[in-house]
């Protein structure tokens, strides 16, 4: 059944705000109507349209996994008009949420495989929903080894610090690699950009799926490295970002060729990406 009322957001309340970095906060949001919360049915990798009334809407990926509870988390970097307003909001304030939109990650296809996550900058946010899904008590046994390679510009820009340092490493059969662009006092980890770091870690392609997310430049360079390491196009999954207004495949602007990122994406395999014009 098509949802005809899709442009109207549901009222929701901000229940928690975590400061991730100087320009990034994670908002925990709960729908005012418990029935909507119960039946929202978000899948890892999907996105929502967040409304700040008086300012408009913006597409934000859901960074929480549905396995973590009946709430939604949105990790928001302050870059534009709407995100600046969101950053001024406080716990208890109302926003509007509509969704969930997009295809989400093909987690069924990933079952039985090792997973190698690569995230650059704020793009850890969209893949975190899948990381938490596959690492959940419920589904951990469905997946093999989980490795996460994450790079940020500086120590301050590292998102989900406690997830990376404590929560995820504590789960069995996981490995976390982190890097920052330039050396900094107090940082004992790797220093350098993400693409060469992937080459250094050199994941092997056997029975492995790579999930890659980052700014357009990282996607382009990262894909090249993965191909060099012997990964096939079907083994590489990425998630795209485009400017969106409706998220329903109608407003037109997020097309890449004949595909709309909002309804046909945002998740694509490299095999699918190669069928599309390089206009993202």
């Amino acid at each position: 059944m098509p949802n005809p009322t899709a442009l109207t957001p549901y009222p929701a309340t901000i229940t928690k705000i975590d400061v991730e970095a100087g320009d990034t906060k994670t908002f925990t949001v709960v729908f005012d109507d418990p029935e909507i919360m119960e039946n929202f049915g978000n899948q890892p990798g999907q996105v929502c349209m967040l409304s700040a009334f008086g300012e408009g809407e913006s597409t934000i990926s859901i960074t929480s996994s549905p396995t973590r509870g009946k709430f939604l988390e949105f990790c928001v970097r302050r870059v534009g008009r709407l995100t600046s307003v969101l950053h001024q909001m406080e716990v208890g304030q109302k926003i509007g949420v509509r969704g969930p939109y997009g295809n989400g990650f093909p987690y069924e296809m990933m079952k039985g495989k090792d997973l190698f996550f690569i995230g650059g900058g704020s793009a850890l946010a969209p893949i975190r929903s899948l990381i938490d899904y596959v690492l959940s008590d419920q589904y951990r046994s469905d997946y093999g080894r989980v490795e996460i390679l994450y790079g940020a510009r500086s120590m301050d820009d590292v998102l989900f610090k406690s997830d990376l340092a404590e929560r995820w490493p504590a789960i069995q059969n996981t490995k976390i690699y982190t890097t920052i662009d330039r050396p900094e006092e107090g940082w004992n980890g790797h220093v350098g950009f993400v693409p060469p770091f992937i080459e250094e870690v050199a994941p092997t392609p056997e029975n492995k799926i790579v999930i890659l997310a980052g700014p357009p430049i990282l996607i382009k360079l990262g894909l090249a490295v993965m191909e060099k390491l012997g990964f096939k196009d079907e083994q590489i999954i990425t998630t795209l970002e485009m400017r969106m207004k409706c998220c329903l495949g109608k407003c037109g602007r997020c097309n890449v060729g004949s595909k709309f990122i909002c309804v046909d994406g945002p998740v694509f395999s490299l095999a699918q990406l190669k069928e599309m014009p390089p206009e993202y």
Partner: peptide, 20 residues
């Protein structure tokens, strides 16, 4: 909601500055 045009540079300009 109002008509918009794909001929405007701002149409696809992302808040972060990237324009496909």
């Amino acid at each position: 909601r109002c008509w918009d045009s794909c001929m405007y540079p701002e149409y696809t300009l992302e808040a972060g500055g990237h324009n496909p």
